[in-house]
């Protein structure tokens, strides 16, 4: 019970000087254990979408449901990974990951066991006692992913999680996320402005129009990916070399390019 359904969601911000429509008649159903990536030009409302699903923000009209329930606020069933990690700088890596488990009342022994396995999964064992600022950006984002996934949430919401990382780290993180997602699939809503990242990760790619954000096009990737055996290739660059990938990338690029605000 973890499907995400946006039904005619609209979000309007009333600023002192003007009224901004961030999201307009947004209809999208994300099936259980489906990995959906939203791409769109900056300011198109893609982050607004994610915030509505997270329960940080609410639609001005329309509805957002997760697992058949109307979203009324944030909760550990919908873990969020933020672009700038949002780790607690005063807590060690271990304690950052522990907070959600403590809140859930998980007994100490089981808590330690789960933290340990989360650290192991994200290759963080040696960093358990470090503070976030002592780690590289890539390591910090691993901690944030460990903190989110240790709760075993049905839904994972990722807001440009690799946007603040350098290119090499980004590639490694994308490969690891694919490994995680294929082994233990969850319902994932992932926001990015990288077309390659979207096609590489997604079961479906949603292209948004420029503001006010609407859905322009939804592209199914999963069937093609399985047919072409992308997941059997060990490296992202091997996947990106596939003619099927290149063709899809060009398609998404064209679709997205039409939405760029013409620069003066």
């Amino acid at each position: 019970m973890s499907a995400i359904v946006f039904a005619g969601a609209r979000r309007v911000y009333d600023l002192p000087s003007r009224r901004v429509v961030a999201l307009e008649s947004f209809d999208l159903s994300i099936a259980e254990k489906e990995f959906v990536v939203i791409v769109g030009p900056s300011g198109c409302g893609k982050t607004t979408c994610l915030r509505l699903a997270a329960g940080f923000d609410f639609p001005s009209s329309g509805e957002v449901n997760v697992g058949g329930q109307k979203v009324t606020g944030p909760g550990p069933d919908r873990a969020v990974v933020f672009q700038h990690f949002a780790l607690f700088p005063w807590k060690t890596v271990h304690d950052n990951i522990a907070l959600g488990l403590r809140n859930a009342g998980v007994p100490a022994a089981e808590r330690e066991r789960r933290i340990e396995s989360a650290l192991k999964l994200m290759n963080l064992e040696s960093a358990a006692r470090a503070f976030p600022h002592q780690l590289s950006g890539g390591m910090q984002q691993r901690v944030a992913i460990a903190r989110a996934t240790v709760l075993d949430p049905a839904v994972l919401l990722m807001d440009e999680p690799f946007g603040a990382l350098d290119a090499q780290t980004r590639v490694v993180m994308q490969e690891e996320l694919v490994r995680l997602a294929r082994v233990n699939p969850r319902t994932v809503l992932f926001i990015t402005h990288s077309v390659e990242e979207a096609i590489y990760l997604a079961d479906r790619v949603v292209v948004m129009t420029r503001a006010p954000g609407r859905i322009k096009e939804i592209i199914a990737v999963k069937a093609l990916r399985e047919q072409e055996g992308w997941d059997t290739l060990p490296k992202i660059e091997d996947v990106m070399d596939q003619p099927s990938f290149v063709q899809l990338r060009t398609h998404v690029w064209r679709s997205l390019r039409d939405e760029q605000v013409p620069s003066e």
Binding site: A54, G73, G75, P76, R78, F82, A86, L87, F88, N103
Partner: peptide
């Protein structure tokens, strides 16, 4: 984001 993260973690 820190407050949101804390709330998201329950």
């Amino acid at each position: 984001a820190l407050l949101e993260a804390a709330r998201m973690l329950g």
